[in-house]
């Protein structure tokens, strides 16, 4: 049986305490929320913090405030979000993204904060210590070389969060709290395109909440590509959101997932959509932009060339859905099931 290395466990009741304990030795203290990312990583010795600060007991992190927009505590489970009526009704892109994360059992454990901070993934890295020893380790942990591209001077591990592209498309900001203060940043600014240093969060900061603006006038969607209908991380994904005035787009955001070390915004193409109606030609030109931007590497399931090609099709599907086309059959085939929610 895979077993955890030794660690010290501390259970704060407040964010303040958690931040203070984290500040004591931020280098080898890690936050434990749902555990669905960290615990496997610890068992594989990818991470070996000497102290875990368990956030389960911090009740303020588990709140959802939907009075104005949506403020989601970082400790809210993915299942709770999937079953939250307003998420389904107002932020369908987020609902589709979260509803396709991992499996129902893992969504009962995993939190929104955890998915936002999900460690970047790589088939050279998400391996046991002994396996990594067999390749003399890699740049991300204990080694020097990025085996994905041996000439690369930075780690190319892939951003695999489903929630973040959807949240960025919806204009999310996140709150970061440390012992020394609090700051709010646009979610897109939380990320850097570097597989090792993929978060701009400081080691002493706790991500406590993610906030979405009001959704009036917005439509949103999320298309995820993965091998199976369950379990798998995305190998390519697109989140799109647009505010409409009639059938004309006022503003739009398009974010690609799993084709870089961060969620990748398709900025220029999204800007071109402003003031336009979604014609097939326009959608094709946006899809071209996305295709060019996407840089999948050979470190996930599927071949990278094919993954890159599918970006076009995913973007087109997403935009068609925003336009109002009936995409249910295509989605069911791709997702391998009609996305469902228990009422």
């Amino acid at each position: 049986m895979m077993r955890l290395p030794s660690y010290r466990y501390r259970a704060p009741k407040t964010v303040q305490d958690a931040a203070a304990w984290l500040a004591e030795s931020p280098g080898d203290t890690m936050l434990l929320a749902g555990g669905t990312d960290l615990i496997p990583n610890m068992k594989r010795r990818q991470q070996a913090p000497s102290t875990l600060v368990g956030l389960r007991g911090v009740t303020e992190l588990a709140q959802v405030d939907d009075r104005d927009g949506l403020e989601i505590g970082a400790g809210v489970t993915l299942s709770a979000l999937v079953h939250h009526d307003r998420v389904h009704a107002r932020y369908p892109g987020l609902w589709q993204a979260v509803g396709q994360i991992a499996t129902p059992l893992l969504r009962n454990m995993g939190t929104i904060g955890g998915n936002i901070c999900l460690d970047t993934r790589c088939t050279y890295y998400d391996q046991s210590f002994e396996w990594r020893q067999a390749i003399n380790f890699c740049m991300k942990k204990d080694g020097d070389t990025c085996w994905v591209a041996t000439s690369s001077d930075k780690c190319l591990a892939v951003s695999s969060t489903d929630a973040a592209p959807a949240l960025i498309a919806l204009g999310a900001t996140v709150r970061l709290v440390s012992a020394t203060g609090t700051r709010d940043v646009a979610l897109t600014d939380l990320y850097a395109n570097d597989g090792m240093h993929y978060l701009t969060r400081r080691a002493d900061e706790i991500l406590t909440a993610v906030t979405l603006p009001r959704a009036e006038g917005w439509r949103s969607t999320y298309w995820k590509l993965r091998r199976r209908g369950s379990f798998d991380f995305p190998v390519a994904a697109v989140a799109a959101a647009a505010r409409f005035d009639g059938d004309r787009i006022v503003e739009a955001r398009i974010v690609l997932g799993a084709v870089a070390s961060r969620p990748l915004e398709v900025l220029a193409a999204a800007a071109r959509l402003a003031g336009q109606t979604l014609t097939d030609d326009l959608m094709a030109s946006v899809a071209d932009d996305a295709y060019t931007l996407a840089k999948p590497m050979d470190n996930t399931d599927f071949e990278l060339v094919w993954r890159k090609k599918t970006v076009r099709s995913l973007v087109t599907s997403a935009l068609r859905e925003l336009r109002g086309d009936d995409m249910r059959a295509a989605r069911t085939k791709l997702a391998r099931h009609p996305l469902l929610v228990i009422s």
């Binding site: 955890l4 466990y9 259970a11 434990l32 749902g34 555990g35 669905t36 615990i39 496997p40 875990l52 368990g54 389960r56 299942s79 129902p104 059992l105 893992l106 009962n108 454990m109």
Partner: peptide, 13 residues
């Protein structure tokens, strides 16, 4: 009452 994976739950919790 929630189905979860016991392999990922630390005993402290």
């Amino acid at each position: 009452d929630q189905p979860v994976l016991s392999c990922l739950v630390v005993s402290h919790e």
